[in-house]
Design a protein around this nucleic acid. Structure first.
Lengths: 211, 211
DNA sequence: CTCTCTATTGGACAGAAGGTCAATAGGAGC
DNA sequence: GCTCCTATTGACCTTCTGTCCAATAGAGAG
């Protein structure tokens, strides 16, 4: 009764794709071997033939989740901004937009994060991705602090980076739990205000704009 | 074969207490009717006699979790600080300390938050608690913005409140996933720096201290 | 065409889960 | 002491899970 055969790589990819879809729709809780098999149009036995244990499947799906939610690619439109103190808020806005727009991915990401708190294997993956994410942010925060050493005295690049991650993270998480009461624009305005709070800066900026 | 009887209220309390302990140790996933019954030294049938469905038990435990993690009581030591711009960072520090110290509670809280993204009943509870939490913060942020209307122009109280919640939330969440790489003190310093970033403020503060 | 290898299937199994329910005993009221 | 109510128990059911595995068919090598 076996069906059509396929190469190792393609089958794995097919199963993973199905698993990712299932996880998006039904959550990690609904990510069962049988559900994945059904979504892929395969038998559940085959899923366990390619992924020896369920953990491996869950872990592989996490890789996808991290790639789509916790990977930072600094866009050209952001990178072209010359003022370091404006570049960071711009990037934050981009990230917040991205995450709040893709609610299902963010929701799944949060589920995995919670799961990671209990499962070391998952935690390690998330931790590694988080470090890469911070590193990508770190470039911008360092430049920003170097550009104005006197303002934000005592603030380290690592500290500011962690706060920036909190901005993104915290926004996505709050927007997830009560989408109607949470105003993203208001939130972003507050973030921007904090990052550019020096009166001198604000004046210079509005002056440049009005000219 | 029935055992000792007890009043409705006491039994419920006993079961809830056991359920909370189980959830802290084994997570929401491990919060099963039978595990709770075992922890309470009762039969699983009795647990379902007092909580008709498992959802009700899970919901009741959530109330405890929210009370212990997402409730803000502004301490006297914080409330006595006269400068509004110093009060907020002080409160943030307090909250961050509290959450990072009680890791198990924070972990459980995060699990529930993720669960809330899929279950409307839980989401409603978290949303309500979050609103109360924000309201308690809101008092301080309003005073802070009113004290210095020129600085942080365009920042609304609600926006700043949401950001403050992100500070706390984001810190706890990051500390949860990689406790060794995340430096809480560095993080708090960055937050404080952002909130007091005006050079005039910094000078005034150190001046006042040295005098 | 035949042989061999293995990807594939589907059945079987054990365990754990939530939920139901008849039987029973603890305890209050009389 | 008797009665009645109900809190309590434990057996039972169904469903769903991960995991194992014997049987089978697809496909490439010879």
């Amino acid at each position: 009764m076996p069906g059509q055969k396929a190469g190792e790589a393609e089958r794995r990819e097919q199963i993973l794709e199905a698993a990712y879809k299932v996880a998006l729709r039904r959550g990690v809780e609904g990510l069962t071997v049988r559900a994945v098999a059904a979504a892929a149009g395969l038998s559940h036995g085959l899923v366990l033939f390619h992924f020896k244990r369920k953990d491996q499947l869950v872990g592989a799906v996490l890789d996808r989740v991290l790639a789509s939610t916790l990977s930072l690619r600094v866009d050209q439109t952001v990178d072209r901004i010359e003022d370091p103190a404006e570049r960071l808020p711009a990037l934050l806005r981009r990230e917040v937009d991205r995450l709040t727009r893709s609610g299902r991915e963010a929701r799944l990401f949060l589920e995995y994060w919670a799961l990671g708190a209990r499962h070391p294997a998952l935690r390690a993956k998330i931790g590694a991705a988080l470090e890469r994410y911070r590193a990508a942010f770190g470039r911008l925060t360092e430049e920003m602090l170097r550009a104005e050493p006197d303002r934000l005295a005592g603030v380290t690049p690592a500290g500011l980076t962690a706060v920036a991650v909190s901005f993104v993270n915290g926004c996505a998480v709050q927007a997830l739990i009560d989408p109607e009461r949470f105003d993203v624009e208001e939130y972003l305005a507050a973030v921007q205000g904090l990052l550019e709070s020096s009166p001198a800066r604000a004046v210079a900026k509005t002056g440049a704009r009005s000219s």
